[in-house]
């Protein structure tokens, strides 16, 4: 039961969806649409369980006085405050949007912008022409970095066209080749999942 039922579920729903792609009959199409809608409903729970886990992990951290447990209190308070603001005032509530605008936006945006600094130090310390291949990478990178911003156009008016050529010719070719490889890999993975050969996503795959 524990291993057969999941295989039946994955095979049954999977192959129905595969076949329904090719059969335009109304009953089949409606059923497939219903399954899709269920899927989206279930996916919502994936997020709920994520939030549930955050609460659980941080409660445990506080209970067992693990390292930095004090911060977990801050985290949980923020979570509760945000949820209270949202569920009492609604997603249009002033306080909820106030926190979104003045806490979530600046923190999210700043976190990402830290990368500007890391990219700079990587450029200085890690980005080296150690081999012919790396040299090629380097030259392309420098051309794109200069030619794609206004300073490149200012230096030489043909710069943007040169960069566009790099993007549409060698870049497109390599990206497409890589894409084909990835697509094949994903199809083979999908097939194994549907056939129940690949079970690692269920955890281990053995009973």
């Amino acid at each position: 039961m524990k291993s057969i039922l999941p295989i039946i579920v994955v095979f049954g729903f999977g192959f129905f969806m595969l076949v329904s792609f090719f059969i335009p009959l109304k009953g089949i199409q409606d059923t497939s649409q219903t399954f899709q809608n269920w899927y989206i409903g279930v996916m919502a729970f994936f997020i709920f369980i994520g939030i549930f886990n955050i609460i659980k992990i941080n409660l445990e951290k506080i209970q067992r006085r693990l390292r930095d447990w004090q911060y977990s209190i801050i985290l949980l308070i923020c979570l509760l405050v945000m949820m209270a603001a949202g569920f009492i005032g609604g997603p249009e509530g002033g306080l909820f949007l106030y926190f979104y605008k003045n806490v979530q936006i600046p923190l999210g945006a700043t976190m990402f912008s830290l990368l500007a600094f890391f990219v700079a130090s990587a450029a200085f310390r890690a980005f080296r022409a150690r081999s012919p291949e790396a040299t090629l990478l380097l030259i392309a990178a420098v051309l794109v970095m200069i030619g794609r911003v206004p300073i490149g156009y200012w230096i030489w008016h043909g710069f943007p066209n040169l960069v566009e050529w790099i993007m549409t010719v060698p870049n497109t070719a390599a990206k497409r080749g890589i894409l084909f490889g990835i697509d094949l890999g994903m199809i083979s993975m999908g097939l194994r999942v549907l056939l129940g050969i690949e079970r690692s996503y269920m955890g281990g795959g053995k009973e």
Binding site: I47, F48, G50, I51, I54, I74, L75, L76, I77, C78, L79, L80, V81, M82, M83, A85, G86, F87, P91, F96, F99, Y100, V103, Q104, L107, G108, M111
Partner: peptide, 11 residues
């Protein structure tokens, strides 16, 4: 950030 985002997601 983690707390606020998680709360936001739930709402």
């Amino acid at each position: 950030f983690v707390g606020i985002s998680a709360g936001y997601w739930a709402v």
